[in-house]
Design a protein around this nucleic acid. Structure first.
Lengths: 121, 121
DNA sequence: CGCCTTGTCAACCATCTGGTTGAACAAAGC
DNA sequence: GCTTTGTTCAACCAGATGGTTGACAAGGCG
């Protein structure tokens, strides 16, 4: 899993990490702060943050002994782009398919196989 | 990882599975058909499809011995909703923060802590 | 009928993941 | 300088994941 997009998706596949991201939208938090609501060790939370950081979703700076965690919302665009691209493509296909099916009603109904039919792989 | 959103994110965290989804936007495919471009066994592809199916991203029907795989694009909305919600929230915060920082220039500069400041968890 | 095609199931294996505990480190505070 | 606070590192463990091979079920076809 080397590419960033994979890391971002993987990072958000965990409910705890999604919740952390959600809470970080209201502002930066320290690790302790972030860990509070969850019933796991501080170390576990630290690991989650490493995953989020490796995905580029958060950055950590240093402020005295504290390590404020900051959300990098731009990475969301990476996902949105991917999702929107294929969603749009899928929707376009449905529209095309509807047209094909409409045409077929005037045609021979035995050609309703749909699989391996149009699109010419 | 019980909830669907987690399963969807996890499913798309794999490049091979993302590629399958991408190719399915152009139309349904058989398992063999889907497996062709990848240098893995058919069984491995079958497993990937199970992951996608469990996430609700694809459905498989039966057509003779073939099992056409069909993309269910609606699930994308689940992700988009989640992403957009928090992206918007994060952007709003940035706007608010800009305002705060602007106000602070007329104020005492020593209150620039930002961490643990407002929001009052 | 017997066989080939298509795909899944089962068992196995290496690696990753998310959790644990205990120790260590870094920066303030006393 | 020692302690307290905040966080990470290291070792370990159970379970999930992604791959393999081998067997086999289900449906056309010669």
């Amino acid at each position: 899993m080397t590419d960033q997009l994979s890391r971002v998706f993987a990072a958000l596949a965990d409910p705890t990490r999604r919740d952390m991201v959600a809470r970080l939208t209201e502002g930066d938090h320290t690790v302790n702060d972030l860990a509070a609501p969850y019933d796991v060790s501080l170390q576990a939370v630290s690991k989650h943050l490493k995953v989020l950081e490796d995905a580029g979703l958060v950055t950590r700076t240093r402020e005295a002994q504290r390590r404020p965690v900051h959300l990098e919302a731009e990475v969301f665009d990476l996902m949105t782009k991917w999702i929107e691209r294929y969603r749009r493509q899928a929707e376009e296909r449905f529209t095309r398919l509807d047209a094909v099916l409409a045409r077929m009603q005037d045609d021979d109904p035995s050609t309703t196989s749909t699989l391996t039919e149009g699109t010419a792989s």
